[in-house]
């Protein structure tokens, strides 16, 4: 019972953090929310996986946040996120999108649970929330940091669900390497953009 309550709390945290990542334009808040999000995801992953293997995901996630944070810290403030000007960028619009994802999650979770019994409502809900917000995040941005955050969020959602059906050490390891690779490549792309901007300024 207590475990279930904690799991629902983890789902709540996931909803809050993914909303924060999606709505906020301040990279510090986004990365902070991602850090907390990895804790909630870790909890949901360990519902179906041993603690040690689950902790791989937590540690990897935090390493990614550290890599992105340190890189972003060294960049000039002018490098702040530039969203896609074509799409509405207001916070209310984004909040509506999150609400839509939450509603879809509420509708779909029982159906998935009946199709794949034993996953657990919390695991499915947490996973779908992350996948949904990650995908809309990806759809609404062409900014490097936001795209990486969207990808990481989507992957985390998938990992929660996949951990319930596949607990191979190799897969856990390869997923960790993939996540870490995304974080490092994200840092590289941020640096690349900044080096180009600096070169232009010097001209």
């Amino acid at each position: 019972m207590i475990l279930d309550i904690i799991s629902w709390a983890a789902v709540g945290i996931i909803l809050a953090t993914s909303t924060a990542i999606f709505i906020n334009r301040d990279w510090r808040i986004s990365l902070g929310a991602l850090t907390v999000q990895y804790i909630a995801a870790f909890w949901l992953v360990t519902r179906h996986m041993p603690f040690v293997m689950g902790s791989v995901k937590l540690i990897t996630g935090w390493m990614i946040v550290a890599a992105l944070g340190i890189t972003r810290l060294g960049l000039p403030a002018a490098e702040d996120q530039q969203g896609n000007a074509f799409l509405p960028r207001g916070q209310w619009f984004r909040l509506m999108l999150i609400l839509l994802v939450a509603l879809v999650t509420v509708g779909v979770t029982p159906r998935i649970e009946s199709a794949i019994p034993g996953l657990g409502w919390q695991v499915i809900a947490g996973s779908l929330l992350l996948i949904g917000t990650g995908l809309i995040h990806l759809g609404m941005t062409s900014d490097t940091l936001n795209a990486i955050l969207g990808l990481l969020t989507t992957l985390t959602g998938f990992e929660i669900l996949y951990a319930a059906v596949e607990s191979s050490i190799l897969v856990t390891g390869l997923l960790a390497v993939t996540n870490l690779g995304l974080g490092i490549v994200g840092s590289y792309l941020l640096l690349a953009g900044s080096a180009a901007a600096e070169a232009e300024e010097e001209r």
Binding site: S142, T144, L151, T154, T178, L182, Y188, A192, G193, A197
Partner: peptide
């Protein structure tokens, strides 16, 4: 993407699509 070049949208889309394929 060389380190002196700002990544374009094609690069981000490439990374996004290839990563989304895996799950």
């Amino acid at each position: 993407v060389p380190i002196y070049q700002k990544p374009g949208r094609g690069i981000i889309r490439f990374l996004t699509y290839q990563t989304l394929a895996m799950p």
